[in-house]
Design a protein around this nucleic acid. Structure first.
Lengths: 387, 387
DNA sequence: GTTGTTTGTTCTTCTTCCGGACGAATCCCG
DNA sequence: CGGGATTCGTCCGGAAGAAGAACAAACAAC
């Protein structure tokens, strides 16, 4: 299948292990790379030489310190060169589009947000997203031609094969392949995934789950979804629709859900639902931000509602954790930062999961907040763009 | 970390890809290996030469047919040689111990079963198991010294680090490391895992889940557990206690479970529980076998109870499948063959899982029945014994 | 200045793989 | 019955990669 020879593949593998090490740990000397990869000095030297020649790596101006003690020749540091060009991440939510343009090591150069109703008209949302990518590129002082790839997330499961949205969750998007559509508009490769998956990837790589290998990322926002990382890799399921925590049925006689079932967890717990639940008791129009502020201020009603919501999530999550025994749960999404919500989740997990499972588990809020998805989208673009 | 050189590792990898291909597809020609591995004729020839020299592979007496058409030189077939010696699998259940002795390609040579109450006294059960292994070895015409390794399963989660049983599920086994205990008795390496995990491994390799990569194996027997295979690999969780499907809480006010929680699925659905539920309505003492026969015969009470049990399992399974999106569910354990149980599971999964998830999923009974665990234990022993 | 340590490169050797050429074994066809 | 045609397996030469030995470079400590 692969036309390249095994030896070429071996060298390719070794090159990759150097670049990934550099990506993970930042600039380091060849000697450090020797220690990190287990390859010989000679081989590392030769590989780094290749990488410098091909422009993927540069020798930095400053020197480091020798490995042991202060004695010895100071090493020359090498670092991943910021390859020319940029990538973009696009986060399409139910109520917003967020775009980030980053260089090819993941440093975000420009970011844009727009509120809009995405559900009804996929075409319009994609037009808008494409325009925002171009604007963000310009804001970062880049040309349209600098863009190499785009990662995007959509707030719905994506069928693995057709890469299109199958379920009825997004009304205006049925049978649409968001990646193809955006590629047509921008003229570069576009890679799409589900929002919770990319949030998980972001928290795993740069957020609250750094270093974890079995992780459940729960996104509490307009919808409720989970991104599941097992063994350090995203689990997408056989047809790519894993992580539908929000469509676990919690009330057989509950409200009909947009997914077609009834009584889904998402019908009880989601940002709009909680706003609607709280609004009657308050004189001012509530927003997520205001609710979070009230939570911090100790407002009893808000605390109660968020804590109940957390317990409902935790109840479903406990079952999942009994089955998966993850080491960490990261709560993200617009409501992920709420302490009451987190406490509710923690309480329900402790209550309903097996004691050993609960003991092996930490529940934390995401570090990246609303930006998790777009950061994950950037990571996806970087991971997929050819090296 | 690895002291071997990259080149040696490369050759090792290629050797492995040949042996795994031979293990998966049986005897085949070098030309087939070329097509299967993508390596060159020369390389395959050389690797096979090495493997023959080292005794891992033999040239069979009979020849095969050429690849295309009938023309061409008939190939020489090579096959994994049956290395000297044997391995054993030990299945410790709540009410039985089953032992199998197999050659080192997994062909079972002798098997023994004994009914016993395992829970109360782990030491006694292990004594008995060791004796049965020796007897089975003798029955297969082998010497005690021929035994290379043992795989075993225990009906409880095993802590990954201490390899001991932490939870209170097995009263007489607390803090015991079954693998160490059995190793002391038999003098060979013993590898232990949970029963559902090994059942999953068996059905994956040689049973109803062959070729699947995302699989949930549900074991319905004295207890209720799940073995979860994702991406072709067993998922054990961060501390090794994944798959506790039986301890999902289904009734907040339910019976207290031996795990310490209350209302666990296992308190409603397990073989002893179902027997107890049915017994009052029948004059003869019921056993699992009799219940299965009544099910086949169309007995209304049995069908109703098994179907209800299936639906209860399916309800919990649907939540798990929403989150994992597996391609197959295999129902095993002593009750796994019941059509009513299977139909109940299928119905509840269809009812409670998301439509797309349910559509991507097939629910089948295990091929291996009661023997799944012991077959999996043999596989574990073979996989872990040094090649 | 001398010694010791760490770093990085060059040169050589060894391993591994691949492509082409060649013999082997069988079938097909005249 | 004999000559292609075809597939299988091996031998040979060559290319690519990695490791080890030797050596130059750069600094600290004495």
């Amino acid at each position: 299948m692969a036309t390249t020879s095994s030896l070429e593949r071996l060298r390719e593998t070794n090159r990759r292990s150097i670049t990934t090490l550099l990506a993970a740990e930042g600039p380091m000397s060849r000697a450090d790379l020797v220690r990190g990869t287990g390859l010989s000095r000679t081989t590392v030297s030769s590989l780094v030489g290749d990488l410098i020649a091909s422009g993927h790596v540069v020798e930095t101006a400053d020197r480091g310190r020798p490995h042991k003690g202060g004695s010895g020749r100071p090493p020359l540091l090498v670092a991943l060169s910021t390859p020319g060009g940029a990538v973009a991440g696009v986060d399409v939510g139910h109520g917003h589009v967020r775009v980030a343009v980053a260089d090819r090591v993941g440093t975000v150069l420009a970011e844009e947000i727009a509120d809009m109703d995405v559900d009804e008209d996929g075409t319009h949302a994609l037009d808008r997203a494409a325009r925002m990518v171009r604007e963000a590129l310009a804001a970062a002082g880049l040309e349209p031609g600098d863009l190499h790839a785009v990662g995007m997330c959509v707030p719905a499961p994506l069928d693995r094969r057709s890469a299109s949205i199958q379920t009825g969750i997004l009304r205006g998007w049925r049978e649409l392949s968001p990646a193809d559509e955006l590629r047509r508009r921008l003229g570069v490769p576009v890679f799409a995934d589900n929002d919770a998956n990319l949030g998980a990837l972001a928290e795993l790589g740069q957020g609250a789950a750094r270093g974890a290998s079995d992780l459940v990322y729960v996104k509490v926002a307009s919808g409720l979804g989970a991104g599941i990382v097992l063994g350090g890799r995203l689990h997408r399921g056989s047809t790519g629709i894993a992580g539908e925590l929000g469509h676990v049925q919690v009330d057989e006689h509950g409200q009909v859900c947009r997914c077609g079932n009834r009584g889904c967890l998402e019908t009880l717990v989601s940002a709009p639902r909680l706003v609607a639940l709280l609004q009657p008791a308050y004189d001012v129009p509530l927003s997520i931000e205001r609710i979070l502020a009230l939570d911090d201020a100790g407002d009893a009603g808000v605390r109660r509602v968020l804590s109940d919501a957390g317990r409902a999530i935790g109840r479903a999550l406990a079952d999942l954790c009994n089955n998966l025994n993850p080491e960490r749960v990261v709560v993200g999404g617009s409501l992920g930062a709420s302490p009451s919500l987190g406490a509710g989740i923690r309480a329900a997990v402790d209550r309903f999961a097996q004691p050993d499972t609960a003991a092996a588990l930490t529940v934390v809020s995401g570090d990246l907040g609303d930006r998790a998805e777009v950061v994950g989208a950037v990571s996806l673009a970087i991971a997929r763009v050819s090296v």
